[in-house]
Simulated scan of single mutants.
Amino acid sequence: MSDLKLKIAFWNYDRTQALADGTVKIDGVDASFENTRIVSEIFERMIRQCEFDVSELGLTYYLRTLDFDNPPFIAIPVFPNRCFRHSAIYINKSSGIQKPQDLAGKTVGEFAMYGHDAGVWPKGILSDEYGVTPDQCRWVIGGLDWPLAPIDFIPRAQPANVNVTWAPEGTDLGEMLETGAIDALISADVPKCVLNNSPQVARLFPDYESVERNYYQQTGIFPIMHTVVVSKELLAQHPGLAQSLYQGFCDAKDVAIKQYKTGMIFNNMGIMVPWLSQLLAEDRFLLGDDWWPYGVEANRKEIDTFLRYHFEQGLSKRWLTCEDIFVPELLGT
């Protein structure tokens, strides 16, 4: 019996490279892999045309598809993108913002859409830890240093009690931050003015690494941004496929982890990052030997927290659970 042919799409990550280059095979699957210039292009092609059988999707993108009349996807507990997000909040130095509470009453830009994955987390953290809720700010949604087509392929939920406007297409929120047209910015991507060390801008948390490490020590949360979804119809036709896909992604991640661990023997000379081995040692000490876990149970706190934030921020019609969003046979992973 021939292997099942599948089209699989994800961005160019070290933890998926072993799948893309054929080092790791998915049992029973003849896979072709696709990448794109920016990861949101994968999201759009998957949601608009169901172009892939298996695809990376931002968590909020996936959750919003659950509001479709006939949701086409279900997730497996694989998380190819995760990132601490205190560092995603930027301020104009003339805005009077000295501490998180000062964001109340300010105009805040947000990259791409209201409630992108890297926006849900900071908003939730600001609310939980500092008492600053989204309704206390004015929000302007737009792009950064290159023209960004409107994210119009998923529901653009907007709470009635939150002031949200959209900047004209092609607007650069980074430029608006630098000139003071907005007071602050939340963005997955780093704006050019920050990369260029503009004296007009800064991060809300200048020592963000220490803040984020302390956040992990206090909460145990390593924020998840993206998951992997599969066509529901495909899974119905091929029992056991979800487990094979999950195992393939786990095996590929294990290859990347082994490469980093082995690289420490040779001081990771193949990568142009000074003191990388020390950073890896510090991360393993804090996050554990598997510092990028897959599976439901190892990530339940992160997932439950994101699902709560998503509901509290008016992005989900109801408060979802892990049982609502993942393949049932993988809930015990």
Rank of each mutant, 00 (worst) to 15 (best):
D3L: 12
D3S: 05
L4G: 07
F10C: 00
Y13C: 14
D14A: 13
T16G: 10
D27Y: 06
V29F: 05
S32D: 05
I38E: 07
S40D: 11
C50K: 15
F52Q: 03
F52G: 03
F52A: 00
D53C: 11
L59V: 09
Y61I: 14
Y62C: 00
L63R: 06
F68E: 11
N70G: 05
N70Y: 10
F73V: 04
F73Q: 02
I76N: 04
C83M: 02
S87I: 01
S95F: 03
I97L: 10
Q98D: 05
D102E: 08
K106A: 08
T107R: 08
M113F: 13
Y114R: 11
H116T: 11
V120F: 01
W121D: 03
I125S: 00
D128V: 06
P134Y: 07
G142D: 08
G142V: 04
L144K: 03
D152A: 11
I154E: 06
Q158R: 10
N163H: 13
V164A: 09
G170Q: 05
T171A: 14
D172H: 13
M176S: 10
L177A: 02
I182C: 01
I186K: 02
I186C: 06
I186N: 00
S187G: 15
N197V: 07
R203V: 00
F205R: 04
D207R: 09
S210V: 13
Q217V: 01
G220F: 00
I224Q: 02
E233P: 00
L235M: 07
A236H: 12
L241H: 04
Q243H: 09
Q243Y: 05
S244K: 12
D251R: 11
A252R: 13
A252V: 09
I257S: 11
I257G: 05
M264V: 04
M269H: 04
I271V: 12
P274E: 01
L276G: 07
A281W: 10
D289Q: 12
G295C: 13
G295Q: 15
D304L: 01
L307G: 04
E323T: 09
I325N: 00
